[in-house]
């Protein structure tokens, strides 16, 4: 009657070879041991730091907006203006690059060139770009503006090009068959299809640029990051807490309003 087996093992889902699986597990284990072993921790320094950490948490809970308000507001204004100008310029420049990087509407040489520019912009960290631009243009928000504009080109350019490559070919053909020129084709067949996406991406990038503007100040490219860096250097954790809270608040507001705006525009 009960001739059915009384045991059952779940069959392996990804790696079916037992030996390969064992080797993988051992490899991961070995790596973890080596990696954890290479982390040298000065526990004395850490325990000293705990007291400072406590002060930081207190500073975060009881932020001090007033005593450094001049520096903070200056940094904020720099960050915000930098964010807006770099997003506008970055988006404007990225439109031709995005179009140029779409395989379906441009000649091959243009495509390769534009894709290369986008790839360079995407693979270079904002901070590294900022280091170079600060070295070239001097300290201050102008270098930050250029950094963020450059980073925007890679971001918007790539996503825009991907969008254009996925558009409905039938509409392009229909407009082309009317005898329209290349520019007319862009205006009538492509622009309507990608415009909502472009606006959405720009708003999203505005949000990212603000976050990044808080970072590049660390290497001298202006903005709230520089103020934050100074506050931490001086161990003024209550001011640092205030700055972080302001950043969080602005990011939250930007995120909610941009998602609202995107819904509204579509």
């Amino acid at each position: 009657m009960s001739s059915y087996p009384g045991t059952w093992r779940r069959p392996p889902q990804i790696v079916s070879d037992k030996r390969v699986r064992l080797a993988l597990q051992l490899g991961v284990l070995l790596y973890l041991v080596l990696a954890l072993g290479s982390v040298e921790v000065n526990w004395q320094r850490v325990s000293e730091g705990l007291e400072r950490g406590q002060r930081f948490v207190m500073g975060f809970l009881q932020p001090d907006f007033s005593s450094r308000w001049k520096d903070i507001s200056q940094g904020l204004i720099e960050s915000l203006t930098m964010t807006l100008t770099s997003t506008v310029v970055g988006v404007l420049v990225s439109i031709p690059f995005g179009i140029g990087a779409s395989r379906n509407i441009v000649p091959r040489q243009v495509y390769v060139f534009c894709r290369a520019v986008i790839a360079i912009s995407r693979s270079l960290q904002e901070l590294i770009v900022a280091i170079f631009l600060v070295a070239m243009f001097g300290f201050g928000p102008f270098a930050g503006f250029l950094t963020l504009s450059f980073a925007t080109i890679g971001f918007i350019g790539k996503l825009l090009a991907d969008e254009i490559e996925e558009i409905d070919e039938a509409q392009v053909e229909a407009i082309r068959s009317t005898g329209a020129s290349w520019l007319q084709m862009l205006n009538y067949a492509i622009q309507p299809q990608i415009m909502p996406r472009l606006i959405g991406l720009s708003l999203y990038r505005l949000d990212i640029n603000f976050r990044e503007s808080a970072v590049i100040g660390i290497v001298g490219a202006g903005g709230i990051g520089a103020t934050l860096n100074t506050a931490i250097d001086r161990y003024e954790y209550d001011s640092a807490g205030a700055i972080l809270l302001i950043i969080i608040a602005i990011v939250m507001v930007a995120e909610y309003s941009s998602s609202y705006l995107r819904k509204f525009l579509q």
Binding site: S2, Y4, P5, W8, R10
Partner: peptide
């Protein structure tokens, strides 16, 4: 741990059958 009792597994096979 997917360690069901032998009786349960036998019944599961029986029902699948």
């Amino acid at each position: 741990l997917r360690r069901f009792e032998a009786e349960d597994i036998r019944r599961a096979y029986e029902l699948l059958d």
